[in-house]
Design a protein around this nucleic acid. Structure first.
Length: 508
RNA sequence: GGCCCGUUCGUCUAAGGGUUAGGACACCACCCUUUCACGGUGGUGAUACGAGUUCGAAUCUCGUACGGGCUACCA
C-alpha cells in the first residue's frame, strides 16, 4: 500500500520494559509490517540522571523474546543513525538556536530556586501549580526580559541556561489524531516547555520532532499520556520543518491497572507480572517478575496485548503474529483505555500452549525444567509427556509440577487422603496385582487397566475404591493424567517399585 | 484548580439510526470424566444520567456525572 511507511518505538533506558511499552511496540510493528514499512527503535537517553546502563540491552532482549525485531536501531544499524539521542546532541543544539534566532524560542537563566519561588508566589487555590507560561514569562529572567548585552554576556560567561519555546498567546492548534479525530488546544494554556536543558541535552519535545523529521518517520504511535504535549510538537513541526512534513499521529489508549495507569506496583500488589522479562533494579536490588519467567509464551503475550484496544471486527480472538500483521488496521483501534485482566491473559497462554507446535513447546518446557535444576535428555519421552499433560498447563511453569512424577519417583505421597479408608483387603489386592504386573507382557494403558479391573472383580472390591490409592502411589497426589497412562509411561519396573514402596508406607 | 481524552455485562469487546444488544474471560449449574484438568450444554450479567434531533438512538448533538491522563531542566 505504501512503501514509505516508517514508524518508531522510542524507549527511554531507565528500567524494565512495561506491558504498555510492549503494546506500543506491537502496534508500531504491526502497522509497519502490514504496510511493508520499516520499524525503527530509537533510544531516548537524554535524561542523564535517570539513565540505567543495562536497560538498553534489556529492552532489545525483550524485543527479541517477543519476536518484534527492529529494521533499524543502534544495534541493528540503518541509514538514519545514530539511533541514540545522546549521540546526536549537536544536532538538537543547532535546531534550538535556529528557533531562538527565528523568535520562536528564548534563553532562560532562571535558577531552580527562582523557579521554585515563582511557583510558590503565583500559587493560588485555583491554580495548584503555576506553569512557566505567557502570564509569568515577562517576570522571569530570560532573553525576552533582559537586554541583549546582558544576555550575550551571560552566554559568553557560560552561565547555566535553558532554551524554552515561546508559546503564542491565544492560538488554536489542532491536528487530526488517527484514533481520536480532530483535537484542539488553546496555546494560552500550554507552558513554555524547556527544549534544551542546561546540560546541553534536548528534552523529549525537541528531540522527538527533530529525530522524527531526520529519520523520515511517517506515523507516530505513542501512549495517550503524550496527548497534552502534542501542541508543543505540532508547533515545533510548524516552526522547523513545515506542517506538511509532519507525520500522522495516533495516541494509543492507556493500559489500566486496578486503579489508573498500570504500574509496576499494581503487579507486585496483585501478583501478576507487568514487565516483559525479569528486571532487577541495581540501586535497591529490587526484582520485578517478567511475563517470560512467569511462564508465558511470546505468542500468547503479543496476542492478548493486541486485543487490548484492538479487534478485527469478528469474534476471532486467537491470532498468530502473521495473522495480526495481515489483519491489523489502525481504524479498529479504539479510544478508551483498557484494564489489564490477568485471568484473560492466562487464558490466552493456555490456548497457545494447546495449539503451539510440539517442537517449539518442547524446548521451552525443557528450559523451565532446567530452571528447576532438572535436565531432560530423552526428547521422545518428553514429547509423550507434553501431549499427556499440556491440557492441564496454563503457564509453562505448570509443566514441572504436572509431570515431574513421570521423570522421577515422587518423594511426597498424599497419604492423608487415603489413610482413613485403607485396610488389609486393599493391601492384599495390591500385593497380588504386583505379581500379575510382573508377568505382564503387553505394557500399555488399556491392557493394564483391563487387568486391574478384572482383579478388582475377583477380589470383590469396587474399582473406584482402588483408583485413588493407585493414583497416590504413582503420582503422589490427587491430580495428573489418567492413572493407567501414567503407569504405561513410567514402565513396568518403576510402576511396581512405586506400588511396593507405597505399600510399605501405607501399612506402617 | 486548569487543559485534554474517555464512558456497552465484574473485565476485554461487537453492534458506525431499526438486533430478543452478540462473543470471549471470570463466575454459577448440569453433562463428560472412578483424580485434577480439557471439552460440551445452559445460566446470571451491560448501553452512566438528563435533555434534544428522528417515525425510530447504544449509535448523532448538547449538558451533567464519573473515570483516566497531563500540568518537571522525566520520558
Amino acid at each position: 500500500m505504501n512503501d514509505s511507511v516508517r514508524v518508531r518505538f522510542a524507549p527511554s533506558p531507565t528500567g524494565g520494559l512495561h506491558l504498555g511499552g510492549v503494546r506500543t511496540v506491537l502496534f508500531n510493528y504491526l502497522f509497519a509490517k502490514h504496510n511493508n514499512g520499516k520499524f525503527i527503535v530509537r533510544i531516548e537517553d537524554t535524561d542523564q540522571s535517570r539513565y540505567v546502563p543495562e536497560a538498553e540491552e534489556y529492552i532489545f532482549n525483550c524485543l527479541n523474546w517477543v519476536g518484534l525485531q527492529p529494521d533499524e536501531s543502534p544495534i541493528h544499524g540503518g541509514d538514519y543513525g545514530p539511533y541514540r539521542q545522546s549521540e546526536r546532541k549537536e544536532i538538537y543544539k543547532k535546531y534550538a538556536e535556529q528557533l531562538v534566532r527565528d523568535g520562536f524560542a528564548y534563553y532562560a537563566f532562571d535558577t531552580q530556586e527562582e523557579l521554585e519561588k515563582m511557583r510558590q508566589d503565583f500559587k493560588t487555590t485555583h491554580n495548584h501549580s503555576q506553569q512557566y507560561d505567557h502570564s509569568v514569562r515577562m517576570k522571569m529572567k530570560n532573553s525576552i526580559t533582559c537586554s541583549t548585552e546582558e544576555v550575550n554576556t551571560w552566554l559568553k560567561e557560560g552561565r547555566s541556561h535553558v532554551v524554552r519555546i515561546k508559546m503564542p498567546k491565544h492560538e488554536n492548534v489542532s491536528f487530526k489524531d488517527m484514533i481520536r479525530g480532530e483535537v484542539h488546544f488553546d496555546t494560552s494554556v500550554v507552558d513554555d516547555k524547556v527544549l534544551l536543558k542546561a546540560d546541553g541535552m534536548p528534552t523529549y519535545h525537541l528531540a522527538v520532532v527533530v529525530d522524527d523529521y531526520l529519520m523520515k518517520i511517517s506515523h507516530v504511535f505513542r501512549g495517550e499520556e503524550w496527548l497534552p504535549s502534542a501542541p508543543v510538537h505540532i508547533l515545533l513541526w510548524k516552526y522547523l520543518f513545515g506542517i506538511d512534513a509532519m507525520p500522522q499521529w495516533a495516541h494509543l489508549p492507556l493500559i489500566l491497572g486496578p486503579v489508573g495507569k498500570l504500574s509496576k506496583r499494581d503487579g507486585a500488589k496483585h501478583g501478576f507480572p507487568v514487565f516483559a522479562m525479569n528486571w532487577t533494579d541495581k540501586n535497591n536490588s529490587e526484582k520485578t517478575e517478567g511475563f517470560k519467567e512467569k511462564g508465558f509464551l511470546p505468542e500468547a503475550f503479543i496476542n492478548f496485548l493486541a486485543l487490548l484496544g484492538w479487534n478485527d471486527g469478528t469474534e476471532k480472538e486467537l491470532f498468530s503474529k502473521q495473522e495480526l500483521i495481515q489483519n491489523f488496521s489502525i481504524d479498529r483501534v479504539h479510544a478508551a483505555g483498557a484494564k489489564f485482566d490477568y485471568e484473560k491473559a492466562k487464558w490466552f497462554n493456555h490456548e497457545w500452549i494447546k495449539r503451539l507446535e510440539l517442537i517449539e513447546l518442547k524446548s521451552k518446557v525443557k528450559d523451565f525444567f532446567s530452571a528447576q535444576q532438572f535436565e531432560i535428555n530423552d526428547s521422545t519421552f518428553l514429547e509423550k509427556v507434553i501431549e499427556l499433560v499440556k491440557d492441564r498447563c496454563t503457564l509453562l511453569t505448570d509443566f514441572y509440577p504436572q509431570s515431574i512424577f513421570l521423570f522421577e519417583t515422587p518423594t511426597q505421597l498424599d497419604i492423608a487422603s487415603i489413610q482413613p479408608k485403607w485396610d488389609n483387603k486393599k493391601n492384599i489386592f495390591f500385593t497380588e496385582w504386583i505379581l500379575q504386573l510382573t508377568e505382564m507382557i503387553n505394557w500399555d494403558a488399556t491392557y493394564i487397566e483391563e487387568n486391574f479391573k478384572a482383579l478388582t472383580n475377583l477380589h470383590n472390591i469396587k474399582t473406584g475404591d482402588l483408583l485413588l490409592p493407585l493414583r497416590i502411589m504413582l503420582v503422589g497426589g490427587k491430580f495428573g493424567p489418567p492413572v493407567f497412562q501414567v503407569a504405561a509411561l513410567i514402565e513396568k519396573k518403576e510402576t511396581i517399585k512405586r506400588i511396593e514402596n507405597a505399600l510399605k508406607l501405607f501399612n506402617s
